[in-house]
Amino acid sequence: MSHAPTFFGSLSDYQKGSVEIVTGDARHYVFSNIFEVATRSAPYERVVVAKNLDYVQEVMRAEGISPWFACGHDEFAVCMDGEITIEFIKLDRPPAEDHPGAVLAGDAPQGRRMGRIRLKRGHQALLPAGSAYRFEAIKLGVIMQQTMLGDLSVQKWREICLH
């Protein structure tokens, strides 16, 4: 007997779930779908889909080339759809370690070239503290990023969540 195929979802094929309330409010579950969020986002807009006090998960629509970002602490990017290349620079003057979240690093960040990583769906990359990074979508995609709430984090819960 064969097994049911594994379904991962994508920008072109996702089916959002639901919340059936007995008591309380659907808003308590802050329920959204990352593919739906990315469908409605500007390229590389860092939309917060999960927030646990100072920590967040951000979703980005990967389309074209992103600005250079930098961060004083580690971040982690998971490619949820498409194909993405990440370019890295070891910054001469990195953001402070205690500055939460990502910041823009300018058009030409100063530092040593570290290399590049190419991600496909399901791949996870470390975005190391003190580096600048830039995404390029080889194929239109979606990035989910574990980081801290920062200057570039966009919160628009009423637009993205069931209520």
């Binding site: 379904f7 991962f8 979802g9 996702y14 959002k16 919340v19 802050v30 959204s32």
Partner: peptide
């Protein structure tokens, strides 16, 4: 233990557990 909700999550869905 009184029931509050039933949450169906499909690929790409995000939900908080309060």
């Amino acid at each position: 233990g009184a029931p509050r909700a039933r949450v169906t999550m499909r690929a790409g869905d995000v939900a908080a557990m309060p």
